[in-house]
Amino acid sequence: MKIKMKRIYEKPSSDGYRVLVDRLWPRGMSKENAHINEWNKDLAPSDKLRKWFNHDPELWVSFSQKYITELQKSDSVKEFLERNRKHEVITLLYAAKDEKHCHAKILKEYLEKLKTENKM
């Protein structure tokens, strides 16, 4: 299984199974144009953490650590991988403009680490 990530506003192309990993629906995106297979809010940072971070690059390191802690405490991540292991490609979709400081980047790395540890 290959895990990719991209902004939901980009056109779908060889994305495989498309998963929106934001807690909030992307502004200006209709459900018809989103072309998602799943909206998994449980993979997104908690509302409290998301609001605290507020896309502030100065908080990136702390945010990353706190988000990883949330992921580690959640069964949702392992359940997501197990449920979707049959897909050759999974694309994590997000709305943030800043790709460098986006939670999907942390999630992708975390999923890849779990996938390797569990040999999926």
Rank of each mutant, 00 (worst) to 15 (best):
M1Y: 04
Y94T: 03
K86V: 09
R7S: 12
A96H: 04
E10N: 14
A104Q: 02
S13I: 10
D22K: 07
H55D: 15
I68C: 03
R7P: 09
L71A: 08
E117D: 14
L93P: 01
V89W: 05
L59Q: 15
E82V: 14
F53E: 13
K73N: 12
K31Q: 13
K113A: 14
S76W: 00
K100T: 15
Y67R: 02
K66S: 09
E38D: 12
N84I: 08
A104S: 14
L59V: 08
I90K: 01
R23S: 06
W39C: 08
I90P: 03
T91C: 06
L81I: 11
S64D: 04
N40I: 13
E79S: 12
R18L: 05
Y67C: 05
K100Q: 14
N37E: 14
A95S: 15
P45N: 13
K86W: 01
L107G: 05
L20Y: 02
G16P: 03
A44P: 07
K100S: 11
Y17C: 09
M1D: 09
R23A: 10
K66R: 13
K108Q: 12
V89H: 00
Y110I: 08
N33E: 15
L20I: 04
L49H: 10
S13G: 04
L49S: 14
A95Y: 02
V19W: 01
L81H: 00
Y94K: 02
F53P: 04
D75Q: 07
E82M: 11
E88P: 01
K66E: 05
S76N: 11
H101Q: 06
K86Y: 08
L24C: 13
K48E: 15
E79Q: 13
E79P: 00
L92E: 04
F53D: 12
S64C: 00
I68N: 00
P26S: 12
N84C: 04
Q72T: 11
W52Y: 13
E109W: 03
E32G: 03
L24N: 09
I8Y: 05
K66V: 01
V77P: 04
I8F: 05
Q72P: 00
T91H: 05
L59N: 12
R50H: 11
F63W: 00
E99Y: 02
L43V: 08
R85H: 09
E117G: 04
M1F: 01
F53Q: 12
N33W: 04
K41Y: 07
T69E: 10
K73W: 02
W39M: 08
N37H: 12
C102K: 00
W52C: 13
F80R: 03
R85I: 10
R83Q: 12
T69V: 06
K48I: 15
W60L: 01
H103F: 01
G16H: 05
W52I: 12
V61S: 07
H87F: 09
H55W: 02
P26E: 14
R23H: 11
K31A: 14
R7K: 13
I3A: 06
K6M: 02
D42F: 06
T69C: 01
W39S: 08
S64Y: 00
K108C: 05
R83N: 15
